[in-house]
């Protein structure tokens, strides 16, 4: 992978100037490369990774992983039905997977009810959905490579050494 992407994947706020310095390139060159990635859709968006457990003023969120069994459609396979499912705004992620079921759908809602209602009223009654199994998420330990623990500031190295 291009090192520009490697840097941005770790730190979406890295500036063009800093990246240029790190990679010994001209800022214009880096800027052009990033624009190109954005245009092609290789870079889709920049966002902050938020540990919602630490945000006390927002209403808590419920998240569920739902296994969905599907009857594939002739000529279209899973594509069309997947699209119908992932288009719901409640769905935050949707994957086609191998194994005993077909789609893994991640749904977020304000509480247990909203998520159950979504499954009962929207998902299960879709024509090609043969069955679902809903797993409510109890605790997040790590997400997208980030460990969701409050970082301690303790410095484990001694401050000066040869």
């Amino acid at each position: 992978m291009d090192e520009i992407l490697e840097i941005l994947e770790k730190d979406g706020r890295a500036t063009v100037e800093d990246i240029a310095k790190m990679l010994h390139k001209k800022p214009d060159e880096v800027k052009k490369a990033i624009k190109k990635y954005e245009k092609e859709g290789a870079i889709l968006k920049y966002k902050a990774v938020i540990n919602k457990d630490l945000i006390k003023d927002t209403e808590s969120e419920v998240r569920a992983l739902i296994e969905v069994n599907i009857v594939p459609q002739k000529d279209l396979g899973f594509e069309k039905i997947a699209e119908r499912i992932y288009s719901f705004p409640e769905v935050t992620s949707c994957y086609l997977i191998s194994g005993t079921y077909d789609l893994l759908v991640v749904v977020e809602g304000r509480n247990l009810n909203t998520v159950s209602n979504f499954v009962a009223e929207k998902l299960s009654c879709l024509e090609n959905v043969r069955g679902t199994a809903t797993h409510f998420l109890l605790k997040k330990y790590k997400e997208d490579g980030v460990i969701l623990k409050h970082k301690s500031d303790e410095n484990k190295r001694i401050a000066i050494s040869y």
Binding site: R157, I158, A159, I160, S161, Y162
Partner: peptide, 16 residues
């Protein structure tokens, strides 16, 4: 150095 608090150290001879 070791006795001082909140130092930014660029004096460390080991990986971070």
């Amino acid at each position: 150095v070791l006795g001082m608090k909140e130092v930014i150290s660029l004096g460390v001879g080991e990986p971070d």
